[in-house]
Amino acid sequence: MRGGGAGAGLSERLRGAGGLTVEERWAVALLDPEAPTPPDLTSWNGSDPGQRFAVYRNNVVVSLVESLAQTFPVTCELVGEEFFRAMGREFVRARPPRSTLLARYGEGFAEFVDGFPPAASVPYLADMARLEMHCLAALHAADADPAAPQVLEAALREPECLPALRLRLHPSLRCLRSEFAVFSLWDAHRGELEISQVNPLAAECGWILRSGLEVRLLPMCAGDCDFVEALARGNSFGEAAEAAAGDREFDLGRCLATLLRWGMVTSVNGIK
């Protein structure tokens, strides 16, 4: 475990006359096109090292914007490639990745879009980014087998245990509530709906989940989200049903059936 202690000393020793290490200078210049090219770079033929350094600057920003474009394809289609990539560059410079895993890059993008004035004329854009970030998280979430039918049948034979039953849900399942019709807009971009028939100002909520290898988006009612969120907090079946009962549209039987159909109930505990 000598990395930590040695590293701090090393970093001190690496500081040159200007007080910055090579990497500190590069780190600034890679993300800020107005920062000067790091010093002490040369080329064999006397060509401009700044132009050569720009290859790295380009790689960093373009590859990260490309990663965003892959993660947020519908967000990109909504505003067009040119706008999306320009916005992506701003995001990359403001919020570069903190993790080496690009499968996670894009957390905070929706909040950035929310606070990005040029995108204000597309009010549902940030929620579409939220939806697509959920898709990415669902895609790579841990695997879990659905609970065996016998377990559910056993629970039915002990109805007095039902209120206190603990249902564990699949790690990929998540909820989104939006003031906008983001699930329908998403469908429209998949050719499932006519885009001109979607009223974007109709609030929607729903589930995002992975069943097998596929990510699926299910528009649901608010009660379905209440129910799933309550179970995810660790509430019992009875408590979750009560949390959802405020929504008149909520149908507990159908909600649970949908969870079972997609293999989203992975364990049932509390049967005697």
């Binding site: 096109p33 600057r57 380009n58 790689n59 706008f83 885009i195």
Partner: peptide
């Protein structure tokens, strides 16, 4: 080397040259 990643800052806080031009213009 001439791609957009190394270009100067686009967003100066006072004006922005890009306008959303995607499918959002087909949405009522």
């Amino acid at each position: 080397t001439t791609c957009s990643g190394s270009s100067n800052r686009d967003y100066q806080g006072n004006a922005w040259k890009y306008v959303p031009k995607g499918t959002c213009k087909e949405i009522p």
